[in-house]
């Protein structure tokens, strides 16, 4: 499933402990959680570990224990990501996503509105 399909079909992700499960695969450029701006996605990154599964992606936030406790009601995890097949160098293809926690382990994924302040 592409990122755009996930957004259009309002697919949810999951938050378990320090793991965010996203129902798509993509190329990650920037992830922001609280005040942590993560841009190092190498295997030796101390901030995040990204594991691609068959049709989804798990993001492990290594410095956090429980993301659901970290995020407040209106706070989100911000992600800049590019579809696997898109040109990463074309900035118009950069998608800005916001992931919100819910009352359950589900996490809603939204393309950030114009209102949300998200600096690339």
């Amino acid at each position: 499933m592409t990122i755009q399909q996930c957004i259009d079909e309002k697919k949810s992700g999951f938050l378990y402990g320090n793991r965010l499960i996203l129902p798509f695969k993509g190329r990650f450029l920037k992830v922001i959680v609280e005040k942590d701006i993560i841009t190092d996605f190498s295997p030796s990154s101390k901030g995040i570990n990204i594991v691609e599964e068959d049709y989804y992606t798990s993001l492990y936030f290594l410095e956090y224990n429980t993301l659901r406790e970290t995020l407040s009601e209106y706070e989100n995890i911000k992600i800049i990501v590019v579809e696997k097949d898109d040109n990463i160098f074309d900035v118009t293809k950069h998608k800005k996503l916001a992931v919100y926690k819910t009352d359950t382990h589900e996490a809603t994924i939204e393309e950030t509105e114009h209102d949300i302040l998200f600096i690339e």
Binding site: E73, Y74, E75, N76, D115, I116, L117
Partner: peptide, 12 residues
């Protein structure tokens, strides 16, 4: 609530 969401309001 929409404004709080847009401002990502947090007591942090």
């Amino acid at each position: 609530k929409n404004v709080l969401k847009a401002n990502e309001f947090d007591f942090g």
